[in-house]
Design a protein around this nucleic acid. Sequence first.
RNA 1: GCGCCCGUAGCUCAAUUGGAAAGAGCAACGGACUUCUAAUCCGUAGGUUGCAGGUUCGAUUCCUGCCGGGCGUACCA
Length: 550
Amino acid sequence: MKVENYLRQVFQERLKQLRLNSDAVSIEFEIPRDTRFGDLATNFVMVLAQKLKQNPRQLAGALLENLELDHAFVASVNMAGPGFINFKLSQTYLQKQLNEILQQGAENFGKSTFGKNKKVQIEFVSANPTGPLNVVSARAASVGDTMINIFNRVGFTAKSEYYVNDAGRQVRLLGASVSSRYCELLHVEEAFPEEGYHGDYVYDIARQIIEKYGDKFLALEQDRRVEELKNISLSMILSEQQKVLEDFGVHFDKFFRESQLRAGSTEKEVLDTLTRRGFIYESEGALWFKASEFGDEKDRVLVTQTGEPTYFFIDIAYHKNKFDRGFEAVIDLLGPDHHGYIPRMKAALKALGIPEEAFDIKLIQQVNLFRDGQFVKMSKRAGQIVSMRELVDEVGVDAARFFFLMRRISTPLDFDIDLAKKHSDENPVYYIQYAHARISNILRFGEEKGVRFNPGCDFSLLVEREEMALVKKMLEFPDLLIRAARNFEPNALTQYLLELAEEFHRFYHEHRVISDDLKLSEARIALSEAVRIVIAIGLKLMGISAPEKM
RNA sequence: GCGCCCGUAGCUCAAUUGGAAAGAGCAACGGACUUCUAAUCCGUAGGUUGCAGGUUCGAUUCCUGCCGGGCGUACCA
């Protein structure tokens, strides 16, 4: 049994004895920031005292008076400060829990039923298929992929999805841009489209098309040519995007194509439903959705004067489609430039009768690249961008993923390329990986000496402060993952692993694992193995390798 | 103008959703390798949490108003 549950029982009973309503307050525990306050603390007395209009310290005193706590769980208890109750965990409890962690192993430790099998979809990256992925996409990919892993670990059924805008104006512009470059390379003049794509990659695509197909598209009418070249370019760009993501270790359960959606009837269903409910009107030749009735600042066009569906309209249909597929919660990860979009999408789904809490949009803030201490200026219009491919090739998957996860998603991220490339103590990725490699090395050394991990070893030999600190830190892991999921904070995991690695490095310096004392060696190997497992789980959730040697 | 995000040590960021005396890393300075990996460890120094109010037992966290930075405010996507 976990100590929290034990204590909850004890105090609920105690409240009953004192004829206090135990339903009035939920007994929650937290780990105090300062170890001086013990290993576990609860503030429920203060919350309760406020409700009962009593003095919290007196109430806590009454609760603790003559209270006998089982030493299998708790070593000591005391009241502190304005009415906190602090507990020190017993060594017996920690030793038992270490065994428990090892029993659960890499497969199960950190798993929980928090998500109640809820079907969740997270959509991320979803870049236009009109050019290479950029560094913001890389951040989104790291975050999305990791959050999917965390969600699944804590009991959700989470699926990742990438929306491909392969229909509409932007891809037509791509086709026209490629066509113009294609002609140019073949010494035929064709005007470059206004608002076309200027990046060098457009020339690359045109060049590759010439290599493969020669000049045969010159013979076509311009419209035909643009259409053909659009399709070829699209599939080239898509496969490159998918390749980069794959190389980055990011897997998508589904690539959903806009063209596929357009072929179906979802758009019509959306329009019908909204019309039936009276949320659609015509004005100036366009069809409008009354978004302002649902909290958006103004109404939005769904069908333009020229009879074309707007991106927004299609996107409503796409989101309806997600819910039609049975997802109970849908989360979109968007770039910071899309935040004006949130109220209107929420308005549309509300109008369709989808529960408000079932849909959420998370914004991932921008990425600022620094090289040689200088801000790397990027301009999409001028085709001047650092692509995801370049960045990942330069700094490597592990460092890149870690750096993208290190910050809260709501904070703009300063990405120091030189630092990410450094194989030194300035680079936090290696700190964690080094702990893993170090443990692996100890285990190898142990085998040479004839000691290896023995699940039946004597855990009661582990009594040192650093040993207990490691167990306590590992015990935080399951709740940490829940917190990361609930708050959508992948950075909580990077932070945690740094702390765990730190505890291990400290332990390593204070105590020898493999010594002449066989029993103690076994116990410490077990402890080390547990740490290795937790680090390995954490790194895996983040898509970062756990090296056995460095 | 309106809306969203942000403001914490010199730099980059935390702070368990309102808890106790605000913590790490880097940079600076001083120490530790005959040992299972020094990509490590130990120590010193560094703060009016942008400013001013408010809510309360208690605020970096919630509310209001300023100041500063970023982004958005399309019949584009």
